[in-house]
Design a protein around this nucleic acid. Sequence first.
DNA 1: GGCAATATGGAATGGTTATTCCACTTGAGT
DNA 2: ACTCAAGTGGAATAACCATTCCATATTGCC
Lengths: 285, 285
Amino acid sequence: MDDIPGLETGTLPAPRTFDALKDLVATGHARLPKRLSQAAQYALAHPDDIALGTAASIAAAAGVQPSTLVRLAHHFGYGGFSDFQLVFRDRLKSRASTYEERLRKIEDGTLGGSDEVALLGGFIQAARSSLDALSDSVSPAQFAQCVDVLAGADTIYLVARRRAYPLAAYMAYAFAKLGIRSVLLDSANGIDGEIADLARPGDAAIACSFSPYAPDSVAQAKALSSAGVPLIALTDSVMSPLAACATHWLEVSENDFGGFRSLSAGMTLAMALPVAIAERRRHQG
Amino acid sequence: MDDIPGLETGTLPAPRTFDALKDLVATGHARLPKRLSQAAQYALAHPDDIALGTAASIAAAAGVQPSTLVRLAHHFGYGGFSDFQLVFRDRLKSRASTYEERLRKIEDGTLGGSDEVALLGGFIQAARSSLDALSDSVSPAQFAQCVDVLAGADTIYLVARRRAYPLAAYMAYAFAKLGIRSVLLDSANGIDGEIADLARPGDAAIACSFSPYAPDSVAQAKALSSAGVPLIALTDSVMSPLAACATHWLEVSENDFGGFRSLSAGMTLAMALPVAIAERRRHQG
DNA sequence: GGCAATATGGAATGGTTATTCCACTTGAGT
DNA sequence: ACTCAAGTGGAATAACCATTCCATATTGCC
Protein backbone atom coordinates (compact mmCIF):
# COMPACT_ATOMS: atom_id res chain seq x y z
CA MET A 1 0.00 0.00 0.00
CA ASP A 2 1.26 3.49 -0.85
CA ASP A 3 0.23 5.23 2.28
CA ILE A 4 -1.75 4.76 5.42
CA PRO A 5 -5.38 5.53 4.58
CA GLY A 6 -6.58 8.75 6.06
CA LEU A 7 -3.16 9.93 7.15
CA GLU A 8 -3.31 13.10 5.13
CA THR A 9 -6.69 14.08 6.50
CA GLY A 10 -6.05 12.81 9.96
CA THR A 11 -7.71 9.60 11.04
CA LEU A 12 -11.22 10.77 10.24
CA PRO A 13 -13.58 8.25 8.68
CA ALA A 14 -14.32 8.79 5.01
CA PRO A 15 -17.25 11.13 4.32
CA ARG A 16 -20.34 9.17 3.32
CA THR A 17 -22.15 11.97 1.53
CA PHE A 18 -21.20 14.07 -1.44
CA ASP A 19 -21.58 17.30 0.46
CA ALA A 20 -19.33 16.12 3.26
CA LEU A 21 -16.73 15.11 0.72
CA LYS A 22 -17.01 18.48 -0.93
CA ASP A 23 -16.35 20.23 2.37
CA LEU A 24 -13.37 18.03 3.04
CA VAL A 25 -11.83 18.85 -0.32
CA ALA A 26 -12.61 22.54 0.03
CA THR A 27 -10.98 22.89 3.44
CA GLY A 28 -7.98 20.64 3.00
CA HIS A 29 -7.26 20.48 -0.68
CA ALA A 30 -4.17 22.67 -0.44
CA ARG A 31 -2.43 19.68 1.03
CA LEU A 32 -3.23 17.50 -1.95
CA PRO A 33 -0.39 16.80 -4.40
CA LYS A 34 -0.75 17.88 -7.99
CA ARG A 35 -2.32 14.81 -9.58
CA LEU A 36 -4.55 14.06 -6.65
CA SER A 37 -5.78 17.62 -6.65
CA GLN A 38 -6.43 17.36 -10.35
CA ALA A 39 -8.42 14.19 -9.87
CA ALA A 40 -10.34 15.59 -6.91
CA GLN A 41 -11.23 18.71 -8.86
CA TYR A 42 -12.50 16.62 -11.73
CA ALA A 43 -14.52 14.50 -9.35
CA LEU A 44 -16.29 17.49 -7.86
CA ALA A 45 -16.85 19.03 -11.28
CA HIS A 46 -18.21 15.88 -12.90
CA PRO A 47 -19.87 13.86 -10.14
CA ASP A 48 -22.12 12.02 -12.58
CA ASP A 49 -19.13 10.72 -14.49
CA ILE A 50 -17.61 9.39 -11.31
CA ALA A 51 -20.86 7.69 -10.42
CA LEU A 52 -21.35 5.90 -13.72
CA GLY A 53 -17.90 5.61 -15.26
CA THR A 54 -15.13 3.10 -14.76
CA ALA A 55 -11.83 3.96 -13.16
CA ALA A 56 -10.17 3.79 -16.55
CA SER A 57 -12.65 6.05 -18.33
CA ILE A 58 -12.66 8.60 -15.53
CA ALA A 59 -8.89 8.61 -15.35
CA ALA A 60 -8.67 9.26 -19.05
CA ALA A 61 -11.19 12.10 -18.84
CA ALA A 62 -9.42 13.66 -15.88
CA GLY A 63 -6.00 13.21 -17.45
CA VAL A 64 -4.63 10.98 -14.71
CA GLN A 65 -3.88 7.31 -14.19
CA PRO A 66 -6.42 4.88 -12.78
CA SER A 67 -4.09 4.23 -9.91
CA THR A 68 -4.29 7.90 -9.02
CA LEU A 69 -7.99 7.54 -8.45
CA VAL A 70 -7.43 4.65 -6.11
CA ARG A 71 -4.85 6.67 -4.27
CA LEU A 72 -7.23 9.60 -4.02
CA ALA A 73 -9.86 7.35 -2.50
CA HIS A 74 -7.35 6.01 0.00
CA HIS A 75 -6.32 9.54 0.85
CA PHE A 76 -9.83 10.33 1.97
CA GLY A 77 -10.07 7.14 3.94
CA TYR A 78 -12.13 5.05 1.55
CA GLY A 79 -11.41 1.39 1.10
CA GLY A 80 -10.80 1.90 -2.60
CA PHE A 81 -12.15 3.57 -5.68
CA SER A 82 -15.33 1.50 -5.62
CA ASP A 83 -16.07 2.64 -2.10
CA PHE A 84 -15.38 6.24 -3.10
CA GLN A 85 -17.69 5.79 -6.07
CA LEU A 86 -20.59 4.74 -3.85
CA VAL A 87 -20.85 8.28 -2.49
CA PHE A 88 -21.38 9.59 -6.00
CA ARG A 89 -23.88 6.89 -6.85
CA ASP A 90 -25.92 7.61 -3.77
CA ARG A 91 -26.00 11.24 -4.72
CA LEU A 92 -27.32 10.34 -8.16
CA LYS A 93 -30.17 8.32 -6.76
CA SER A 94 -31.82 11.63 -5.79
CA ARG A 95 -33.47 11.13 -2.46
CA ALA A 96 -33.79 7.39 -2.53
CA SER A 97 -30.14 7.17 -1.66
CA THR A 98 -30.40 7.12 2.08
CA TYR A 99 -33.56 5.10 1.79
CA GLU A 100 -31.99 1.77 0.92
CA GLU A 101 -29.24 2.25 3.42
CA ARG A 102 -31.75 2.98 6.11
CA LEU A 103 -33.90 0.11 5.06
CA ARG A 104 -31.02 -2.27 5.32
CA LYS A 105 -30.18 -0.88 8.70
CA ILE A 106 -33.74 -1.29 9.79
CA GLU A 107 -33.88 -4.83 8.51
CA ASP A 108 -30.78 -5.69 10.43
CA GLY A 109 -32.33 -4.08 13.45
CA THR A 110 -35.57 -5.98 13.22
CA LEU A 111 -33.72 -9.25 12.96
CA GLY A 112 -31.54 -8.45 15.95
CA GLY A 113 -33.66 -6.58 18.47
CA SER A 114 -37.20 -6.93 17.09
CA ASP A 115 -37.70 -3.22 17.53
CA GLU A 116 -41.19 -2.12 16.62
CA VAL A 117 -40.18 1.43 15.95
CA ALA A 118 -37.73 0.33 13.29
CA LEU A 119 -40.67 -1.31 11.63
CA LEU A 120 -42.74 1.84 11.73
CA GLY A 121 -39.74 3.76 10.43
CA GLY A 122 -39.43 1.35 7.56
CA PHE A 123 -43.01 1.88 6.52
CA ILE A 124 -42.60 5.61 6.77
CA GLN A 125 -39.58 5.45 4.50
CA ALA A 126 -41.39 3.25 2.01
CA ALA A 127 -44.27 5.73 1.98
CA ARG A 128 -41.95 8.67 1.54
CA SER A 129 -40.09 7.25 -1.42
CA SER A 130 -43.35 6.15 -2.99
CA LEU A 131 -44.44 9.78 -2.85
CA ASP A 132 -41.18 10.88 -4.43
CA ALA A 133 -41.70 8.43 -7.25
CA LEU A 134 -45.25 9.64 -7.78
CA SER A 135 -44.27 13.12 -8.83
CA ASP A 136 -42.01 11.57 -11.43
CA SER A 137 -44.28 8.88 -12.79
CA VAL A 138 -47.43 10.93 -13.21
CA SER A 139 -47.04 13.63 -15.79
CA PRO A 140 -49.10 16.82 -15.80
CA ALA A 141 -50.62 15.91 -19.15
CA GLN A 142 -51.68 12.44 -18.06
CA PHE A 143 -53.29 13.71 -14.91
CA ALA A 144 -55.08 16.45 -16.80
CA GLN A 145 -56.41 13.97 -19.35
CA CYS A 146 -57.81 11.77 -16.61
CA VAL A 147 -59.44 14.72 -14.91
CA ASP A 148 -60.89 15.74 -18.25
CA VAL A 149 -62.57 12.43 -18.79
CA LEU A 150 -63.88 12.16 -15.27
CA ALA A 151 -65.10 15.72 -15.11
CA GLY A 152 -67.28 15.02 -18.13
CA ALA A 153 -68.85 11.91 -16.67
CA ASP A 154 -72.37 11.70 -15.33
CA THR A 155 -71.67 9.02 -12.75
CA ILE A 156 -68.26 7.66 -11.78
CA TYR A 157 -68.04 3.95 -11.06
CA LEU A 158 -65.33 2.84 -8.66
CA VAL A 159 -63.67 -0.55 -9.02
CA ALA A 160 -61.17 -1.90 -6.49
CA ARG A 161 -60.62 -5.05 -4.46
CA ARG A 162 -58.41 -6.21 -1.65
CA ARG A 163 -55.37 -4.04 -1.15
CA ALA A 164 -56.59 -1.33 -3.51
CA TYR A 165 -60.02 -1.13 -1.92
CA PRO A 166 -59.16 1.63 0.57
CA LEU A 167 -58.40 3.94 -2.35
CA ALA A 168 -61.83 3.48 -3.85
CA ALA A 169 -63.45 3.70 -0.44
CA TYR A 170 -61.79 7.05 0.10
CA MET A 171 -62.74 8.35 -3.31
CA ALA A 172 -66.36 7.36 -2.74
CA TYR A 173 -66.27 9.44 0.42
CA ALA A 174 -64.60 12.38 -1.27
CA PHE A 175 -66.98 12.31 -4.22
CA ALA A 176 -69.93 12.31 -1.88
CA LYS A 177 -68.57 15.30 0.01
CA LEU A 178 -67.88 17.15 -3.23
CA GLY A 179 -71.32 16.51 -4.68
CA ILE A 180 -70.10 14.21 -7.44
CA ARG A 181 -72.22 11.21 -8.33
CA SER A 182 -70.32 7.98 -7.86
CA VAL A 183 -71.01 4.31 -7.32
CA LEU A 184 -68.63 2.17 -5.31
CA LEU A 185 -68.80 -1.39 -6.62
CA ASP A 186 -68.30 -3.19 -3.33
CA SER A 187 -71.67 -4.71 -2.65
CA ALA A 188 -71.53 -7.74 -0.39
CA ASN A 189 -74.46 -9.43 -2.06
CA GLY A 190 -72.83 -10.01 -5.41
CA ILE A 191 -74.74 -7.63 -7.63
CA ASP A 192 -71.71 -5.56 -8.64
CA GLY A 193 -71.76 -7.02 -12.13
CA GLU A 194 -75.38 -6.06 -12.70
CA ILE A 195 -74.83 -2.58 -11.31
CA ALA A 196 -71.81 -2.07 -13.52
CA ASP A 197 -73.86 -3.20 -16.53
CA LEU A 198 -75.99 -0.11 -16.05
CA ALA A 199 -73.03 2.13 -16.71
CA ARG A 200 -73.26 4.03 -20.00
CA PRO A 201 -70.71 5.71 -22.25
CA GLY A 202 -71.73 9.02 -20.72
CA ASP A 203 -70.45 7.77 -17.37
CA ALA A 204 -66.87 6.91 -16.47
CA ALA A 205 -65.04 4.48 -14.23
CA ILE A 206 -61.96 4.47 -12.05
CA ALA A 207 -60.31 1.11 -11.52
CA CYS A 208 -57.52 0.57 -8.99
CA SER A 209 -55.48 -2.58 -8.98
CA PHE A 210 -51.92 -3.56 -8.21
CA SER A 211 -49.90 -6.66 -8.80
CA PRO A 212 -51.06 -9.36 -8.26
CA TYR A 213 -54.15 -7.97 -9.92
CA ALA A 214 -57.38 -9.14 -8.33
CA PRO A 215 -59.20 -11.07 -11.08
CA ASP A 216 -62.50 -9.48 -10.10
CA SER A 217 -61.19 -5.97 -10.58
CA VAL A 218 -59.69 -6.81 -13.95
CA ALA A 219 -62.83 -8.52 -15.18
CA GLN A 220 -65.01 -5.64 -14.07
CA ALA A 221 -62.71 -3.08 -15.62
CA LYS A 222 -62.70 -4.96 -18.91
CA ALA A 223 -66.47 -5.26 -18.88
CA LEU A 224 -66.88 -1.53 -18.30
CA SER A 225 -64.33 -0.69 -20.94
CA SER A 226 -65.92 -2.86 -23.60
CA ALA A 227 -69.31 -1.37 -22.77
CA GLY A 228 -67.84 1.91 -23.97
CA VAL A 229 -67.44 3.44 -20.53
CA PRO A 230 -64.31 5.62 -20.36
CA LEU A 231 -61.95 3.92 -17.94
CA ILE A 232 -59.27 5.55 -15.82
CA ALA A 233 -56.87 3.09 -14.22
CA LEU A 234 -54.67 3.53 -11.17
CA THR A 235 -52.17 0.75 -11.47
CA ASP A 236 -48.52 -0.06 -10.96
CA SER A 237 -46.94 -0.83 -14.29
CA VAL A 238 -47.33 -0.93 -18.03
CA MET A 239 -47.63 -4.69 -17.68
CA SER A 240 -50.85 -4.32 -15.76
CA PRO A 241 -53.94 -5.76 -17.45
CA LEU A 242 -55.65 -2.51 -16.52
CA ALA A 243 -53.19 -0.50 -18.56
CA ALA A 244 -54.25 -2.50 -21.58
CA CYS A 245 -57.96 -1.76 -21.39
CA ALA A 246 -57.95 1.72 -19.86
CA THR A 247 -58.69 4.92 -21.71
CA HIS A 248 -55.99 6.62 -19.64
CA TRP A 249 -53.96 5.24 -16.79
CA LEU A 250 -51.81 6.66 -14.02
CA GLU A 251 -48.73 4.86 -12.82
CA VAL A 252 -48.51 4.37 -9.09
CA SER A 253 -45.51 2.25 -8.21
CA GLU A 254 -45.28 1.89 -4.48
CA ASN A 255 -42.23 0.91 -2.53
CA ASP A 256 -42.49 -1.84 -0.02
CA PHE A 257 -41.16 -2.69 3.39
CA GLY A 258 -40.80 -6.34 4.19
CA GLY A 259 -42.98 -7.23 1.24
CA PHE A 260 -45.80 -4.93 2.32
CA ARG A 261 -46.27 -2.28 -0.29
CA SER A 262 -47.13 1.22 0.73
CA LEU A 263 -50.42 2.84 -0.22
CA SER A 264 -49.38 6.43 0.29
CA ALA A 265 -48.82 7.36 -3.33
CA GLY A 266 -52.05 5.72 -4.43
CA MET A 267 -53.92 7.35 -1.58
CA THR A 268 -52.50 10.74 -2.44
CA LEU A 269 -53.65 10.35 -6.01
CA ALA A 270 -57.02 9.25 -4.71
CA MET A 271 -57.21 12.49 -2.78
CA ALA A 272 -56.10 14.72 -5.61
CA LEU A 273 -58.35 13.24 -8.28
CA PRO A 274 -61.74 14.05 -6.76
CA VAL A 275 -60.69 17.58 -5.86
CA ALA A 276 -59.29 18.15 -9.34
CA ILE A 277 -62.52 16.90 -10.88
CA ALA A 278 -64.58 19.15 -8.69
CA GLU A 279 -62.39 22.12 -9.58
CA ARG A 280 -62.66 21.37 -13.27
CA ARG A 281 -66.42 21.13 -13.10
CA ARG A 282 -66.71 24.36 -11.22
CA HIS A 283 -64.65 26.21 -13.80
CA GLN A 284 -66.43 24.64 -16.73
CA GLY A 285 -69.87 24.96 -15.21
CA MET B 1 -26.59 -17.79 -27.90
CA ASP B 2 -30.10 -18.75 -26.81
CA ASP B 3 -31.99 -16.93 -29.48
CA ILE B 4 -31.51 -14.51 -32.28
CA PRO B 5 -31.67 -11.01 -30.79
CA GLY B 6 -34.85 -9.19 -31.58
CA LEU B 7 -36.56 -12.14 -33.16
CA GLU B 8 -39.42 -12.24 -30.70
CA THR B 9 -40.18 -8.57 -31.09
CA GLY B 10 -39.56 -8.52 -34.79
CA THR B 11 -36.26 -7.22 -36.07
CA LEU B 12 -36.72 -3.81 -34.53
CA PRO B 13 -33.66 -2.18 -33.05
CA ALA B 14 -33.57 -2.08 -29.27
CA PRO B 15 -35.18 1.03 -27.76
CA ARG B 16 -32.60 3.57 -26.68
CA THR B 17 -34.73 5.46 -24.19
CA PHE B 18 -36.52 4.33 -21.08
CA ASP B 19 -39.90 5.49 -22.32
CA ALA B 20 -39.50 3.67 -25.61
CA LEU B 21 -38.60 0.52 -23.71
CA LYS B 22 -41.64 0.98 -21.55
CA ASP B 23 -43.86 1.20 -24.60
CA LEU B 24 -42.30 -1.89 -26.07
CA VAL B 25 -42.97 -3.84 -22.90
CA ALA B 26 -46.51 -2.50 -22.78
CA THR B 27 -47.42 -3.50 -26.31
CA GLY B 28 -45.66 -6.83 -26.48
CA HIS B 29 -45.74 -8.07 -22.93
CA ALA B 30 -48.13 -10.91 -23.64
CA ARG B 31 -45.32 -12.64 -25.48
CA LEU B 32 -42.95 -12.58 -22.52
CA PRO B 33 -42.50 -15.80 -20.56
CA LYS B 34 -42.94 -15.86 -16.82
CA ARG B 35 -39.44 -15.13 -15.58
CA LEU B 36 -38.72 -12.64 -18.32
CA SER B 37 -41.93 -10.85 -17.51
CA GLN B 38 -41.00 -10.87 -13.84
CA ALA B 39 -37.63 -9.37 -14.60
CA ALA B 40 -39.14 -6.80 -16.96
CA GLN B 41 -41.65 -5.77 -14.36
CA TYR B 42 -38.93 -5.33 -11.77
CA ALA B 43 -36.88 -3.33 -14.23
CA LEU B 44 -39.71 -0.90 -14.91
CA ALA B 45 -40.60 -0.63 -11.24
CA HIS B 46 -37.04 -0.11 -10.01
CA PRO B 47 -35.19 1.64 -12.81
CA ASP B 48 -32.63 3.12 -10.43
CA ASP B 49 -31.61 -0.30 -9.23
CA ILE B 50 -31.05 -1.45 -12.78
CA ALA B 51 -28.96 1.60 -13.50
CA LEU B 52 -26.62 1.22 -10.57
CA GLY B 53 -26.75 -2.42 -9.58
CA THR B 54 -24.89 -5.42 -10.90
CA ALA B 55 -26.59 -8.23 -12.74
CA ALA B 56 -26.23 -10.43 -9.68
CA SER B 57 -27.67 -7.93 -7.22
CA ILE B 58 -30.56 -7.03 -9.50
CA ALA B 59 -31.31 -10.66 -10.18
CA ALA B 60 -31.46 -11.38 -6.48
CA ALA B 61 -33.76 -8.43 -5.86
CA ALA B 62 -36.05 -9.42 -8.71
CA GLY B 63 -36.03 -13.07 -7.72
CA VAL B 64 -34.53 -14.35 -10.97
CA GLN B 65 -31.18 -15.61 -12.21
CA PRO B 66 -28.55 -13.28 -13.65
CA SER B 67 -28.80 -15.18 -16.91
CA THR B 68 -32.45 -14.25 -17.11
CA LEU B 69 -31.49 -10.59 -17.22
CA VAL B 70 -29.14 -11.25 -20.10
CA ARG B 71 -31.88 -13.15 -21.89
CA LEU B 72 -34.29 -10.29 -21.31
CA ALA B 73 -31.82 -7.86 -22.82
CA HIS B 74 -31.37 -10.11 -25.84
CA HIS B 75 -35.11 -10.43 -26.13
CA PHE B 76 -35.45 -6.70 -26.65
CA GLY B 77 -32.59 -6.65 -29.10
CA TYR B 78 -29.82 -5.38 -26.87
CA GLY B 79 -26.35 -6.76 -27.19
CA GLY B 80 -26.39 -7.86 -23.57
CA PHE B 81 -27.28 -6.79 -20.09
CA SER B 82 -24.69 -4.03 -20.07
CA ASP B 83 -26.18 -2.53 -23.20
CA PHE B 84 -29.64 -2.77 -21.68
CA GLN B 85 -28.34 -1.09 -18.55
CA LEU B 86 -27.14 1.92 -20.51
CA VAL B 87 -30.73 2.95 -21.15
CA PHE B 88 -31.36 3.08 -17.43
CA ARG B 89 -28.17 4.96 -16.74
CA ASP B 90 -29.03 7.59 -19.30
CA ARG B 91 -32.39 8.01 -17.70
CA LEU B 92 -30.80 8.45 -14.31
CA LYS B 93 -28.37 11.05 -15.61
CA SER B 94 -30.99 13.14 -17.35
CA ARG B 95 -33.37 12.84 -14.44
CA ALA B 96 -30.84 13.93 -11.84
CA SER B 97 -30.38 17.22 -13.63
CA THR B 98 -34.05 18.06 -13.79
CA TYR B 99 -34.95 16.68 -10.39
CA GLU B 100 -34.35 19.76 -8.31
CA GLU B 101 -36.07 21.85 -10.90
CA ARG B 102 -39.12 19.67 -10.69
CA LEU B 103 -39.31 19.86 -6.92
CA ARG B 104 -39.15 23.61 -7.08
CA LYS B 105 -41.83 23.64 -9.72
CA ILE B 106 -44.14 21.64 -7.49
CA GLU B 107 -43.55 24.01 -4.63
CA ASP B 108 -44.13 27.06 -6.78
CA GLY B 109 -47.19 25.45 -8.27
CA THR B 110 -48.92 25.16 -4.94
CA LEU B 111 -48.86 28.91 -4.69
CA GLY B 112 -49.78 29.53 -8.32
CA GLY B 113 -53.10 27.74 -8.23
CA SER B 114 -55.39 26.63 -11.03
CA ASP B 115 -53.19 23.99 -12.64
CA GLU B 116 -54.12 20.39 -11.91
CA VAL B 117 -50.54 19.33 -11.39
CA ALA B 118 -50.08 21.96 -8.75
CA LEU B 119 -52.98 20.33 -7.02
CA LEU B 120 -51.38 16.92 -7.13
CA GLY B 121 -48.13 18.44 -5.93
CA GLY B 122 -49.94 20.05 -3.05
CA PHE B 123 -51.37 16.77 -1.91
CA ILE B 124 -47.98 15.12 -2.24
CA GLN B 125 -46.47 17.79 -0.03
CA ALA B 126 -49.22 17.44 2.52
CA ALA B 127 -48.64 13.71 2.60
CA ARG B 128 -44.92 14.15 2.94
CA SER B 129 -45.08 16.50 5.86
CA SER B 130 -47.67 14.31 7.52
CA LEU B 131 -45.17 11.48 7.37
CA ASP B 132 -42.49 13.68 8.83
CA ALA B 133 -44.75 14.56 11.71
CA LEU B 134 -45.62 10.93 12.31
CA SER B 135 -42.10 9.89 13.24
CA ASP B 136 -42.10 12.67 15.80
CA SER B 137 -45.54 12.23 17.30
CA VAL B 138 -45.50 8.48 17.78
CA SER B 139 -42.95 7.42 20.36
CA PRO B 140 -41.34 3.98 20.35
CA ALA B 141 -42.81 3.23 23.76
CA GLN B 142 -46.33 4.18 22.77
CA PHE B 143 -46.24 2.10 19.66
CA ALA B 144 -44.82 -0.87 21.54
CA GLN B 145 -47.54 -0.63 24.18
CA CYS B 146 -50.24 -0.67 21.53
CA VAL B 147 -48.67 -3.65 19.82
CA ASP B 148 -48.47 -5.37 23.20
CA VAL B 149 -52.15 -5.00 23.85
CA LEU B 150 -53.21 -6.01 20.37
CA ALA B 151 -50.84 -8.97 20.15
CA GLY B 152 -52.52 -10.38 23.26
CA ALA B 153 -56.03 -10.05 21.89
CA ASP B 154 -58.12 -12.93 20.64
CA THR B 155 -60.10 -10.95 18.09
CA ILE B 156 -59.45 -7.37 17.06
CA TYR B 157 -62.50 -5.19 16.39
CA LEU B 158 -62.07 -2.35 13.93
CA VAL B 159 -64.03 0.87 14.29
CA ALA B 160 -63.90 3.66 11.72
CA ARG B 161 -66.32 5.79 9.73
CA ARG B 162 -66.21 8.24 6.90
CA ARG B 163 -62.75 9.62 6.26
CA ALA B 164 -61.04 7.19 8.59
CA TYR B 165 -62.76 4.17 7.13
CA PRO B 166 -60.03 3.38 4.56
CA LEU B 167 -57.59 2.82 7.42
CA ALA B 168 -59.77 0.20 9.03
CA ALA B 169 -60.55 -1.35 5.65
CA TYR B 170 -56.85 -1.74 5.01
CA MET B 171 -56.18 -3.19 8.44
CA ALA B 172 -58.94 -5.72 7.99
CA TYR B 173 -57.25 -6.80 4.78
CA ALA B 174 -53.80 -6.96 6.38
CA PHE B 175 -55.06 -8.88 9.41
CA ALA B 176 -56.69 -11.43 7.16
CA LYS B 177 -53.50 -11.87 5.17
CA LEU B 178 -51.48 -12.25 8.36
CA GLY B 179 -53.80 -14.78 9.91
CA ILE B 180 -55.01 -12.49 12.67
CA ARG B 181 -58.67 -12.64 13.67
CA SER B 182 -60.39 -9.32 13.19
CA VAL B 183 -63.87 -7.97 12.70
CA LEU B 184 -64.48 -4.83 10.68
CA LEU B 185 -67.53 -3.05 12.02
CA ASP B 186 -68.88 -1.73 8.75
CA SER B 187 -72.02 -3.74 8.17
CA ALA B 188 -74.54 -2.00 5.97
CA ASN B 189 -77.52 -3.48 7.75
CA GLY B 190 -77.02 -1.77 11.06
CA ILE B 191 -75.99 -4.64 13.31
CA ASP B 192 -72.58 -3.23 14.18
CA GLY B 193 -73.72 -2.44 17.69
CA GLU B 194 -74.87 -5.98 18.35
CA ILE B 195 -71.66 -7.42 16.89
CA ALA B 196 -69.54 -5.13 19.02
CA ASP B 197 -71.50 -6.19 22.10
CA LEU B 198 -70.07 -9.66 21.63
CA ALA B 199 -66.54 -8.37 22.18
CA ARG B 200 -64.99 -9.55 25.45
CA PRO B 201 -62.12 -8.26 27.61
CA GLY B 202 -59.90 -10.91 26.03
CA ASP B 203 -60.38 -9.20 22.68
CA ALA B 204 -59.21 -5.72 21.71
CA ALA B 205 -60.35 -2.90 19.46
CA ILE B 206 -58.79 -0.32 17.22
CA ALA B 207 -60.76 2.86 16.68
CA CYS B 208 -59.78 5.45 14.10
CA SER B 209 -61.36 8.86 14.07
CA PHE B 210 -60.30 12.38 13.24
CA SER B 211 -61.85 15.75 13.81
CA PRO B 212 -64.78 16.19 13.36
CA TYR B 213 -65.18 12.87 15.06
CA ALA B 214 -67.94 10.74 13.57
CA PRO B 215 -70.48 10.28 16.38
CA ASP B 216 -70.92 6.63 15.47
CA SER B 217 -67.24 5.87 15.87
CA VAL B 218 -67.04 7.61 19.22
CA ALA B 219 -70.15 5.89 20.55
CA GLN B 220 -68.92 2.50 19.47
CA ALA B 221 -65.47 3.09 20.92
CA LYS B 222 -66.97 4.15 24.24
CA ALA B 223 -69.23 1.12 24.31
CA LEU B 224 -66.32 -1.22 23.68
CA SER B 225 -64.19 0.53 26.24
CA SER B 226 -66.79 0.36 28.99
CA ALA B 227 -67.35 -3.30 28.23
CA GLY B 228 -63.75 -3.80 29.33
CA VAL B 229 -62.34 -4.31 25.85
CA PRO B 230 -58.85 -2.83 25.56
CA LEU B 231 -59.08 0.04 23.11
CA ILE B 232 -56.33 1.42 20.89
CA ALA B 233 -57.16 4.73 19.26
CA LEU B 234 -55.69 6.32 16.17
CA THR B 235 -56.69 9.93 16.44
CA ASP B 236 -55.46 13.43 15.90
CA SER B 237 -55.18 15.22 19.21
CA VAL B 238 -55.36 14.96 22.99
CA MET B 239 -58.73 16.69 22.78
CA SER B 240 -60.17 13.80 20.82
CA PRO B 241 -63.01 11.97 22.57
CA LEU B 242 -61.20 8.78 21.64
CA ALA B 243 -58.11 9.78 23.59
CA ALA B 244 -60.29 9.97 26.68
CA CYS B 245 -61.65 6.45 26.55
CA ALA B 246 -58.74 4.61 24.96
CA THR B 247 -56.35 2.31 26.78
CA HIS B 248 -53.56 3.68 24.61
CA TRP B 249 -53.71 6.09 21.73
CA LEU B 250 -51.46 7.11 18.88
CA GLU B 251 -51.34 10.66 17.61
CA VAL B 252 -51.76 11.03 13.88
CA SER B 253 -51.90 14.67 12.90
CA GLU B 254 -52.25 15.00 9.17
CA ASN B 255 -51.47 18.06 7.14
CA ASP B 256 -54.01 19.29 4.68
CA PHE B 257 -54.12 20.84 1.25
CA GLY B 258 -57.03 23.06 0.49
CA GLY B 259 -58.86 21.74 3.51
CA PHE B 260 -58.46 18.12 2.50
CA ARG B 261 -56.39 16.37 5.10
CA SER B 262 -53.94 13.71 4.02
CA LEU B 263 -54.32 10.09 5.05
CA SER B 264 -50.76 9.03 4.44
CA ALA B 265 -49.57 9.09 8.02
CA GLY B 266 -52.61 7.23 9.26
CA MET B 267 -52.34 4.77 6.44
CA THR B 268 -48.70 4.16 7.17
CA LEU B 269 -49.52 3.51 10.79
CA ALA B 270 -52.29 1.20 9.64
CA MET B 271 -49.71 -0.76 7.66
CA ALA B 272 -47.14 -0.96 10.41
CA LEU B 273 -49.52 -2.03 13.18
CA PRO B 274 -50.68 -5.35 11.74
CA VAL B 275 -47.17 -6.37 10.76
CA ALA B 276 -45.84 -5.44 14.19
CA ILE B 277 -48.58 -7.45 15.84
CA ALA B 278 -47.85 -10.46 13.67
CA GLU B 279 -44.14 -10.19 14.44
CA ARG B 280 -44.81 -9.92 18.15
CA ARG B 281 -47.03 -12.96 18.12
CA ARG B 282 -44.49 -14.99 16.19
CA HIS B 283 -41.74 -14.17 18.66
CA GLN B 284 -43.91 -14.80 21.68
CA GLY B 285 -45.45 -17.97 20.28
C1' DG C 1 -50.98 -38.41 -22.54
C1' DG C 2 -46.77 -38.15 -25.04
C1' DC C 3 -43.69 -35.35 -27.73
C1' DA C 4 -41.35 -31.31 -29.22
C1' DA C 5 -40.17 -26.69 -28.37
C1' DT C 6 -39.25 -23.37 -25.28
C1' DA C 7 -37.86 -21.57 -20.81
C1' DT C 8 -35.13 -21.84 -16.71
C1' DG C 9 -31.55 -22.58 -13.07
C1' DG C 10 -26.98 -22.90 -12.03
C1' DA C 11 -22.28 -23.68 -12.77
C1' DA C 12 -18.24 -22.71 -15.96
C1' DT C 13 -15.95 -19.20 -18.62
C1' DG C 14 -13.81 -15.37 -20.50
C1' DG C 15 -13.49 -10.52 -20.43
C1' DT C 16 -13.17 -6.30 -17.87
C1' DT C 17 -12.14 -3.81 -13.91
C1' DA C 18 -10.13 -2.16 -9.67
C1' DT C 19 -6.20 -2.73 -7.35
C1' DT C 20 -1.38 -3.46 -6.24
C1' DC C 21 3.35 -3.20 -7.02
C1' DC C 22 7.66 -1.42 -8.52
C1' DA C 23 10.74 1.47 -11.02
C1' DC C 24 11.26 6.12 -11.94
C1' DT C 25 10.67 11.12 -11.27
C1' DT C 26 10.05 15.21 -8.77
C1' DG C 27 10.94 18.46 -5.30
C1' DA C 28 12.33 20.01 -0.73
C1' DG C 29 15.72 20.40 2.79
C1' DT C 30 20.51 20.57 4.03
C1' DA D 1 24.68 19.27 -5.46
C1' DC D 2 23.32 15.36 -2.72
C1' DT D 3 19.88 12.81 -0.15
C1' DC D 4 15.66 11.31 1.05
C1' DA D 5 10.85 11.35 1.12
C1' DA D 6 6.90 11.76 -1.46
C1' DG D 7 4.51 11.38 -5.83
C1' DT D 8 3.65 9.32 -10.20
C1' DG D 9 3.19 6.28 -14.37
C1' DG D 10 2.42 2.07 -16.10
C1' DA D 11 2.49 -2.78 -16.12
C1' DA D 12 1.10 -7.04 -13.45
C1' DT D 13 -2.38 -9.10 -10.77
C1' DA D 14 -6.37 -10.63 -8.60
C1' DA D 15 -11.23 -10.00 -7.98
C1' DC D 16 -15.41 -9.40 -9.98
C1' DC D 17 -18.81 -9.41 -13.34
C1' DA D 18 -21.46 -10.37 -17.54
C1' DT D 19 -22.01 -13.91 -20.40
C1' DT D 20 -22.43 -18.57 -22.16
C1' DC D 21 -23.52 -23.28 -21.95
C1' DC D 22 -25.85 -27.37 -20.75
C1' DA D 23 -28.82 -30.26 -18.05
C1' DT D 24 -33.38 -29.96 -16.22
C1' DA D 25 -38.04 -28.28 -15.96
C1' DT D 26 -42.06 -26.38 -18.01
C1' DT D 27 -45.21 -25.35 -21.48
C1' DG D 28 -47.86 -25.89 -25.60
C1' DC D 29 -49.48 -28.83 -29.18
C1' DC D 30 -51.19 -32.85 -31.42
